[in-house]
Simulated scan of single mutants.
Amino acid sequence: MNRRPGARPAERGSVTVETALVLPVVVLFVLILLATALAGSQQLAVTEGARAAARSLAIGESLAEARATAARVCTCDTQIAAEGGTWVRVTVTSTSPTVSWIPGFNVAATITVPAEAGTP
């Protein structure tokens, strides 16, 4: 019989069974880690898009220009609202396929900045 030295007959095949039980957990952990990294990356991009659009509106550019600025910075859908003329509030939500496959997960950022003096 071909056995490893010191192995008991009851232990034969235990490495295969242990691997079969642990491998799905390791794969699931790696997938969760990857999804978290993608979501974090997309959150940073959306925040930068909101910041760029808010700055654009604060210096007096139009809503269309602010949307174009946000779209250049990130793959996102912008919802822009100017509040009261003294404050600009920009909300950017992600439409990127990198995180849209995660159920119930939405990436969004809201930035509020004061409008600069002398802007319309």
Rank of each mutant, 00 (worst) to 15 (best):
A70M: 08
A71S: 14
V73Y: 00
C74L: 08
T75V: 10
C76G: 05
T78E: 00
T78L: 10
Q79C: 05
Q79L: 15
A81R: 15
A81C: 05
A82P: 00
A82S: 09
E83T: 03
E83F: 03
G84W: 12
G85Y: 10
T86K: 11
T86Q: 05
W87D: 05
W87Y: 13
W87I: 12
V88E: 02
R89N: 03
V90Q: 02
V90K: 02
V90Y: 00
T91F: 02
T91S: 13
T91D: 04
V92M: 07
V92T: 10
S94K: 09
T95V: 13
S96W: 05
S96Q: 14
T98E: 02
V99W: 09
V99F: 08
S100G: 15
W101A: 12
W101G: 13
I102C: 07
P103I: 07
P103F: 12
P103G: 09
G104N: 08
G104Q: 12
G104E: 05
F105N: 04
N106I: 14
V107P: 01
V107I: 10
V107N: 07
A108G: 01
A109T: 06
T110G: 03
I111K: 03
T112P: 00
V113W: 07
V113Y: 07
V113D: 04
P114D: 01
P114F: 09
P114I: 06
